[in-house]
Amino acid sequence: MLEVEGLEVAYGDLQVVWGVSFRVDRDSIVAILGPNGAGKTTTLLAVMGLLPAKAGSVRFEGEELIGLPTHQIVDRGVVMIPEERAAFQSLTVAENLEVGAYTPRARAEYEETLAEVYEIFPRLAERRKQSAATLSGGERQMLAIGKALMARPRLLILDEPSLGLAPIVVEDIFGVIRRIRDRGVSVLMVEQHVEMALEVADHAYILEMGAIVAQGTGMELEADPRVQEAYLSL
């Protein structure tokens, strides 16, 4: 469904992503793991058209995404939840969900999607009139996911969804990610919680210094001694 090939990204003269390739198959959860500063966020931003790619291609359902403006990529069904507080603080919960469905495609199905989101996150329904700034960390992440779902994604990209959340809340969030996949939305996520990510992921990639250094199914990587040493055996 998503095929990234030989992606290279630079900030000015400073190149940080060096020929990264990976793929996300339909109805699967794919994780990209790696240390801080490896270039994970940079890769995702380039996929979303927020950073220019120096080289490489990003194809979604066969269509080249590089060169498309971000809002059109979202309209194609690729929706990303950026790191930290992805909801708009100056809007209420309901307003966040409303602008979440901004693309014409999403707007057409606004009512149904909204009902679905409120069903997945009843808490959001309770707080719909509240300003997003008053939500707790976990609620905020729920709102971020709910808002992303409003855009009717076919591929949902999450950048460190567990960042700064309490362990129980992280469990919840991963549970939600599974449910989302079961509803037919493929998931690509970047995570630092390696153990938990490998558990839910069908396939995972390890990104170090801007390059993919290992990949495999969650179980394969869990068994990989290098991965165990670097990420699991703390």
């Binding site: 927020l50 809002h71 979202v74 950026p82 708009f88 809007l91 901004y102 855009a151």
Partner: peptide
Amino acid sequence: RATSEDWTRAALTGI
């Protein structure tokens, strides 16, 4: 209003 708060996130929202 969303755009004025953070244009990057607004773009990611499909705006």
